[in-house]
């Protein structure tokens, strides 16, 4: 199915998520989220600790289903109650920790060949062949870290930044419907973080990838992406489109937060740095 730019790629309807329901530890992580993401949109998601950002991505990725009544539709498919691995047809993710996105004991090319089969049945054909190897080399050469010359290196021997860049290539090589990034540069040192963020920008615009990027960093949320969503206590309190976002400043964001959340902004709410 082909979708033109601007058409909805992801629809979330009345998403609620309660953990430890009925106990003293009950937490309402998501409290009625409605969100529509257009094809080729790049949405940055910002919010305080515990606002529900990761929970939201987990729902989209199918790690757990929302409470009854909620609905997750991706590219026309209702995936609300599908198992996590079946979401992979549409959804690709890069996690915060580089260790999660790659397999340490396998080589770079073995990791890549796991990734190109996203959402496809796996057969008993050879996982790596000449054609695939050329494809991997081509994809890796575009990120400029020299990984294309180390296809048979164990991924466990790579640095965190290299592993995260590899995760990014692995997430995008099979052209998923939507890319989820959950603070994917937060554990990297500032320079490496910038490199991986530049790569992200390059890949997302090159492939016109619909993307949801969670970040803690307001500057980043303003600098990247076309649309900005702010979450607070399990709700979306701010949703700023392309035109308004261009001229938005951090002070505007803080003011908007205070109006929308009805409380004063403190540094604990939305951190300014990674």
């Amino acid at each position: 199915m082909n979708t033109a730019a601007g058409q909805n790629i992801l629809t979330l309807k009345d998403i609620r998520k309660v953990f430890f329901a009925g106990t003293v530890d009950e937490v309402t992580a998501l409290n009625g989220i409605d969100l529509e993401v257009a094809d080729q949109d790049f949405v940055t998601v910002i919010g305080s600790n515990g606002a529900g950002k990761s929970t939201l991505l987990n729902i989209v990725a199918g790690v757990f289903p929302p409470e009854r009544g909620g609905k997750v539709v991706i590219k026309g498919d209702d995936v609300t109650r599908l198992e996590e691995y079946k979401h992979a047809t549409h959804v690709a993710r890069v996690w915060q920790e580089p260790e999660v996105g790659t397999s340490r004991n396998l080589t770079i090319e073995e990791n890549m060949s796991l990734a190109i089969l996203r959402g496809q049945p796996r057969t008993i054909k050879k996982a790596i062949n000449k054609k695939r190897r050329d494809l991997f080399r081509e994809a890796l050469s575009q990120i400029g870290l020299g990984l294309e010359d180390r296809l048979t290196a164990q991924v466990g021997t790579l640095s965190g930044g290299q592993r995260q860049a590899l995760s990014l290539v692995m997430a995008t090589i099979s052209k998923p419907t939507i890319l989820l990034l959950d603070e994917h540069i937060a554990t990297l040192d500032p320079r490496t973080a910038q490199t991986v963020m530049d790569l992200t920008e390059m890949i997302v615009s090159r492939d016109k990838m619909s993307t949801l990027m969670v970040t803690h960093n307001m500057e980043m949320a303003l600098k990247y992406g076309k649309r900005l969503v702010m979450m607070h206590k399990g709700r979306i309190i701010l949703d700023i489109g392309e035109n308004r976002k261009k001229n938005l400043k951090i002070t505007d964001l803080i003011a908007a937060f205070e109006t929308a959340a009805g409380e004063e902004f403190t540094d604990d709410n939305v951190l300014l740095s990674c």
Binding site: E84, Y85, K86, A88, A92, R93, L114, L117, R122
Partner: peptide
């Protein structure tokens, strides 16, 4: 976790 994310 990675495997499920890749559809396995």
């Amino acid at each position: 976790k990675m495997l499920r994310g890749l559809g396995v």
